[in-house]
């Protein structure tokens, strides 16, 4: 089964910020409320994240949401490569997210 999360529809059109204390739609909240439950669902072989439709996606949000999966929640680059699929009409966002996952992996080694 594939689970799809459309950030704009299911979280916010205006995701912003890194930490939960800084607002209602931050990277930390998106990770805790959407990414971890989806990746923790054993029936979801693939988790697809769609970014189109959001307005002003910031790097701090992306870094905390996706890099945090490795830094704080113990996911590995291998796990995520196997199960996570990112979709955006802006290719730079996809590369940026994988960069954060890679950096987080390097930082915990």
């Amino acid at each position: 089964m594939t689970k799809t999360i459309n950030v704009a529809r299911e979280f916010s059109r205006y995701p912003a910020g890194r930490y939960a204390k800084d607002g209602p739609y931050t990277g930390e909240i998106f990770r805790d409320k959407h990414l971890i439950p989806a990746l923790g669902d054993a029936t979801a072989e693939r988790v697809v994240i769609e970014f189109d439709g959001t307005r002003g996606l910031a790097s701090s949000f992306l870094e905390e949401a996706f890099g945090g999966l490795v830094r704080r929640n113990g996911f590995t680059l291998g796990d995520l490569k196997e199960r996570l699929e990112l979709k955006s009409s802006d290719e730079s966002i996809i590369h940026e997210v994988w960069e954060y996952i890679g950096e987080a992996t390097a930082s915990i080694r």
Binding site: G17, R18, Y19, K21, D22, T26, A58, S59, S60, E63
Partner: peptide, 9 residues
Amino acid sequence: ITRKNTDQS
């Protein structure tokens, strides 16, 4: 512009 120093905290 948006990776560092962009949170109030």
